[in-house]
Design a protein around this nucleic acid. Sequence first.
DNA 1: CTGTCAATGGACTCAATTGTCCGCTATCTT
DNA 2: AAGATAGCGGACAATTGAGTCCATTGACAG
Lengths: 157, 157
Amino acid sequence: MHVNQTAQYALRVLMEMAKTPSGTVARAQDLSRTTGVPAAYLSKILRRLAKDGILEARKGHGGGFSLTRRLERIRLMDVLAAVGGALERDQCIFGIGRCDARDPCPLHHSWSGLNDAFHSWSRRTTLRDLQGTALRRRRARHRALPRARAGRGARPW
Amino acid sequence: MHVNQTAQYALRVLMEMAKTPSGTVARAQDLSRTTGVPAAYLSKILRRLAKDGILEARKGHGGGFSLTRRLERIRLMDVLAAVGGALERDQCIFGIGRCDARDPCPLHHSWSGLNDAFHSWSRRTTLRDLQGTALRRRRARHRALPRARAGRGARPW
DNA sequence: CTGTCAATGGACTCAATTGTCCGCTATCTT
DNA sequence: AAGATAGCGGACAATTGAGTCCATTGACAG
């Protein structure tokens, strides 16, 4: 079970952009340095995100990419859809074409449970939720605490 | 979120073999027809399953493949491991190397929850469980709509 | 207007996965 | 023993995702 590399890159970059104030313009080259995503490839990913309206692109001097909306309005699902990552919903794990609740393959029910969990999670979780977890975690580590619960916010399902 | 093609093929074929009495020997060529998996490639997959002790292979006239143990003793996890499919556990969804419970990426907790769910599911579920679902479903459909199915019972993959 | 900067998009390379081909070997039948 | 059958395994082809390269386009500064 895995999510493709491109989607991982996209999420990493967006979380990087989320660190700066809303509307901040960042160059692809800089984002490449801070995230470690190969520059030329990152450029492509950013364009796809721009095409889907998640980012705004500005050419020329002083140009770059910026988020078009607030973090709580960008769902993981939107990101995955933009980069074509991991959202083939009706695809059953057997790879059978006609497989739904009425004509299920043997794995259908077991698998679709997991699949539904993933989808509703990606639909419910926004970049803001992720930012929240990251911040809480960082602070917790600073206080040198034992483990704290991940908290309400971004629950897997 | 997806599982690779080879693993899908392996599961389809094993479920096909599960339809016949224990110990029945099936030829790769026939399994290819009934499952729709390309013959030459299926042959490779079957060999990998044999190498991992899930199938027994017999050469020559009257030869073929048969299941080595009862369905309830073959876990999905075993199958996935045999074909190298989808079991990279510690990989975080951001693709970041240093990412564990102590230094988690923003998605770590959400994702590892899903990942754990997948693993325990694949460890818990056996071919027998899948067969159970398939049978229940088939009987239910028969009772509901007693119309004959096309292609003498074979599922049109 | 011109030079510079940064995104754009197409063509290309690279690697892994998927899939094919074919000679070889083991086994069964006659 | 001979022939047919079916798995074995290595070499190879095709496809796809990942990643690079470069000429072009649009925007800003002087």
